[in-house]
């Protein structure tokens, strides 16, 4: 066990965990931020996507001792009032079915739009290809990303 100081969603936290603990479980078990989801544990599905200094990473393989002083953003901190253009577009297009993968989809899309504010359809598909939606909401996700990009 070791003490780690973390900056999550603009707040400072301190946790006492094993250094090999993935951020996914630090967030979910220790910081009570459960919006980041467990899907595969091996960076294959994208449900656990968070931002490290604005870059989308898979928190299931991002170990707590590798974070250092980088700023962590989770779905809970993507916007102050849940009104990020992507969150609004997700509601407008009524994207979710079961909803479980959607926080990961939104976090991945937010990093995409930050790097490429007006992606083409192909760029969206390819950037989002690591995020699985088992319910099959892909066409709506793409439409919502385009709506957010145009807002």
């Amino acid at each position: 066990m070791a003490i780690f100081k973390l900056k999550v969603n603009r707040k400072e936290y301190q946790v006492d965990v094993d250094p090999s603990t993935p951020m996914l479980w630090v967030l979910r078990d220790h910081l009570n931020l459960v919006g980041t989801k467990f899907g595969c544990g091996m960076a294959q599905c994208g449900a656990c996507t968070i931002h490290l200094d604005g870059i989308a990473v898979r928190s299931c393989i991002t170990f707590v001792d590798s974070v250092g002083d980088k700023e962590i953003t989770t779905i809970e901190g993507l916007s102050e009032n849940g009104d990020h253009p992507l969150q609004q577009a997700w509601i407008e297009h009524d994207v979710p079915q079961c909803g479980y993968c959607q926080s990961g989809q939104i976090m991945n899309a937010a990093a995409l739009l930050k790097a490429n504010p007006h992606p083409t359809d192909e760029e969206i598909e390819s950037a989002m290809n690591g995020n699985i939606c088992r319910c099959g909401t892909y066409t709506r996700i793409k439409a919502a990303i385009k709506t957010a990009a145009n807002s």
């Binding site: 919006g35 779905i75 992507l86 969150q87 997700w90 509601i91 979710p96 909803g99």
Partner: peptide
Amino acid sequence: DGHKIVTGQ
């Protein structure tokens, strides 16, 4: 549940 889903509640 849309709002709760997109805000990770």
